[in-house]
């Protein structure tokens, strides 16, 4: 019975989701990029062009049947490098969010539910963190330590959790005053039960929407960092680095900069559309 109900429920949700064209396009883009990134060594035409390979006879080739996205200034296939570059972008988003979302959510739950000093300390910390743009923070960390993907990820994550803390905090403040939380209190439920079983499930949809939107933003920040030369270091393919390298050959060899840039746009757009679609889906559910 419950399996059946859950199944029909998820089918209804999928149906509503599938009626929203932008959401479906977003989901398609996200799934395709994930698949492409995972299967990169098998689907790319020149997997060995990932490394420090130089083929000067083929440098600056325009897009053709052999090289769909053309070749770069040392003759490497740009399509291959774009697909491998997705790996870096998606990994960056994944690692940042895997750190920031659970930590930020936990902090928001604590601040919103317990109030008092817990709230003051946590929320003032978020105020400080929110005043620092993540890109600037990553620049500072790269300057003090050394420019690497790991440092960039940690720098972004160290600020990013505060967005989730603010979101969850405000939701907990609202939900805490609702009757079902009071009901649970009068029924003798423990604080852990109330936080994780009564309040958190009602925040999950908002967190999911925000996380999906965030993925797009984190990818953009990562691309900006590597555009500035502070992300992952060559020869590992990275979309931001490719845009940066190709920029010196604009406008004659436009594909070297423009096509990796378009790839960044597509992935970020995909996550944003997906986030918007999820938001529409959950909004309907909450009204129901």
């Amino acid at each position: 019975m419950s399996e059946l109900a859950a199944l029909s429920n998820s089918y209804q949700n999928w149906y509503r989701f599938s009626r929203n064209p932008t959401a479906v396009i977003g989901l398609l883009i996200v799934v395709l990029s994930l698949l492409a990134a995972l299967l990169a060594p098998y689907i790319t035409p020149f997997p060995d062009h990932v490394g420090a390979i130089v083929d000067f006879r083929n440098r600056h080739q325009p897009p053709s049947l052999e090289h769909w996205f053309g070749t770069d200034n040392v003759g490497r296939d740009i399509l291959t490098r774009v697909i491998f570059g997705l790996r870096v972008s998606l990994m960056l988003a994944f690692v940042v969010l895997v750190i920031a979302v659970p930590f930020g959510t936990a902090m928001g739950l604590l601040a919103g539910y317990f109030g008092g000093w817990t709230e003051i300390v946590i929320m003032r910390l978020t105020d400080i963190a929110l005043a620092l743009p993540p890109l600037i923070m990553a620049l500072a960390v790269a300057a003090v330590l050394e420019p690497s993907l790991m440092n960039a990820m940690l720098a972004i994550a160290s600020l990013w959790w505060t967005w989730h803390t603010r979101l969850v905090y405000s939701m907990v403040r609202q939900i805490r005053a609702l009757e079902y939380v009071e009901a649970a209190e009068t029924l003798g439920a423990s604080k852990t039960h109330i936080l994780f079983r009564e309040i958190l499930p009602n925040c999950v949809s908002a967190i999911a929407v925000k996380t999906s939107l965030d993925a797009g933003f984190v990818i953009l920040i990562g691309a900006s960092l590597s555009f500035l030369g502070l992300g992952i270091q060559p020869p590992t393919p990275d979309l931001g680095t490719m845009v940066s390298d190709g920029a010196s050959f604009l406008p004659d060899y436009w594909w070297e900069s423009l096509l990796p840039g378009t790839a960044i746009l597509f992935v970020a757009l995909g996550f944003n559309l997906l986030g918007d679609g999820l938001r529409d889906l959950f909004d309907v559910e909450d009204v129901r």
Binding site: E179, A183, A184, L187, H193
Partner: peptide, 24 residues
């Protein structure tokens, strides 16, 4: 409570809601 629409958690089944005091 006054309003059963508000005193039952929308994300928990009837069984899960009734379970709360039993566990507590």
């Amino acid at each position: 409570f006054q309003n059963p629409g508000a005193s039952l958690n929308p994300r928990r089944t009837v069984g899960q809601s009734i379970m709360v005091p039993l566990v507590a």
